[in-house]
Amino acid sequence: MIDTIIFDFGNIFIDIDYNLTQEALKKLGVKEWTTELDTLNNEYEVGKIDELQFIQGIQKHTNNADLIEIRAAWNALLLDFPLKRLEFLQMIEGKYRIFLLSNTDATHIDKFEHKFGESFARDFYSCFEKVYFSFEIGKRKPDENTYKYVLNSHNLTPKKTLFIDDRLENIEGAKKCGLHTWHLDPEKENVTQLLEFIKSIHD
């Protein structure tokens, strides 16, 4: 019986399109997303470097774009957050223990809070028993230690916990920790279908 749900953030609650950031960075001169840039991103996502170091790191790959342009390009992927998803979350918050576990960085979270407003963000965060952002905890999915960190911090039982993510590698990491999983396809599925999914597990 599922009593706990751990949600991802991007493409579960807020719609994102990585292509928009890639295109915006290309316009600034970033020809390709290199291994060096990937490493830089991972370091930023676990809080090893700050925003200035990260954006300056990208700047080296641009046509001398300024930091504000790069920050805007980096945030281009953040799209809509349909209100019905927040309302759904508010409806189920008393029925399950719910947590947020997201690979993200300070730049994206700052943009989210400004784009949708502090009161919206506060309403969203308050639905969760605890919010875990990779840049704050120094761990990121799909590392098994990331899931174990959340499980152990709250004495959660893996077989009673459902993890929801749109990225397959993160789902695989959760499975290794014994969690039930929903690999949500944002093209065809919506988090508001959660109760139907849980019913299918129990049937």
Score class of each variant (00 low, 15 high):
E189I: 00
A121G: 00
L179M: 05
F9W: 08
E69M: 10
L162C: 01
L168A: 02
I109E: 13
R97N: 15
K115I: 07
H183F: 07
F135S: 03
K111L: 05
F88Y: 14
E87I: 03
I58F: 06
C177K: 09
G173M: 02
L83A: 12
Y125N: 13
I6Y: 06
M91W: 06
I201S: 10
F99T: 08
M1Q: 11
K130E: 14
V46Y: 02
L168Q: 07
C127T: 00
R167D: 12
P158D: 05
T157V: 15
L20F: 06
I70V: 05
Y149L: 14
I98Y: 09
I137Y: 07
D143N: 15
E196H: 09
L101Q: 08
P82G: 02
M1T: 15
N155P: 03
T192N: 07
H114S: 12
F81L: 03
N19R: 12
G117E: 09
E43S: 14
G94E: 13
R85D: 04
T181V: 15
D105W: 04
K199C: 03
N145L: 13
D17N: 09
E169G: 05
T161D: 08
N103Q: 07
I109C: 02
I14G: 01
D15A: 06
Q22A: 09
Q90E: 15
H61Q: 13
L40C: 00
Q56C: 10
A72I: 13
L78I: 14
D80P: 02
D15S: 10
L20R: 15
N170W: 03
N42P: 00
N145F: 08
A24L: 03
G47K: 06
T157R: 15
G117L: 06
H202K: 10
F116T: 00
I16D: 01
R71A: 15
R122D: 14
V150L: 02
H61K: 12
D3P: 10
G117I: 10
Y125M: 05
N19T: 09
F163K: 04
D3G: 07
Y132V: 01
Q90I: 10
I171A: 04
F9L: 06
E169D: 13
E36L: 07
I14H: 04
N103M: 11
L194F: 01
D166L: 01
H202P: 00
F88C: 03
P186T: 01
P82C: 01
Q53G: 09
E196R: 11
N155I: 01
R97Y: 11
G117D: 06
T192Y: 08
L151N: 03
E93Q: 15
S102F: 05
I58R: 05
I49D: 04
G29N: 01
K176Y: 02
I201Y: 15
T161C: 06
I92T: 04
G178L: 03
K148L: 09
N103S: 07
T181Y: 09
K130T: 12
L100R: 00
H183I: 07
F13K: 00
R71G: 04
I58M: 12
L89N: 08
I198A: 03
E118A: 11
A73P: 00
L89R: 08
K175R: 10
E32H: 11
A121K: 01
A174V: 06
